[in-house]
């Protein structure tokens, strides 16, 4: 219990503006990464052709 209290005091405490901007940046990065995953998947299918999905396993 004592250790846990000490841990919370160590480190940097972000103020509300810093937390808000970090959350917004994280959301933007997440959305961009998700869009890139979809885009690269679609490009792969286009470049290799749809038959790439139709192969014996």
């Amino acid at each position: 219990m004592m250790m846990a209290e000490t841990d919370t005091q160590i480190g940097i405490k972000l103020n509300p503006a810093q937390e808000k901007s970090r959350r917004n940046r994280n959301i933007a990065i997440g959305l961009i990464l998700a869009a890139l995953i979809v885009l690269f998947y679609a490009v792969t299918i286009v470049k290799l052709g749809p038959s790439v999905l139709n192969r014996p396993l």
Binding site: I12, L14, S21, R22, N24, R25, I27
Partner: peptide
């Protein structure tokens, strides 16, 4: 803490 540069940049700034 005040001496550290913690970004407050928004996505629109980038």
């Amino acid at each position: 803490q005040d001496s550290l540069e913690i970004s407050i940049a928004e996505p629109k700034d980038y």
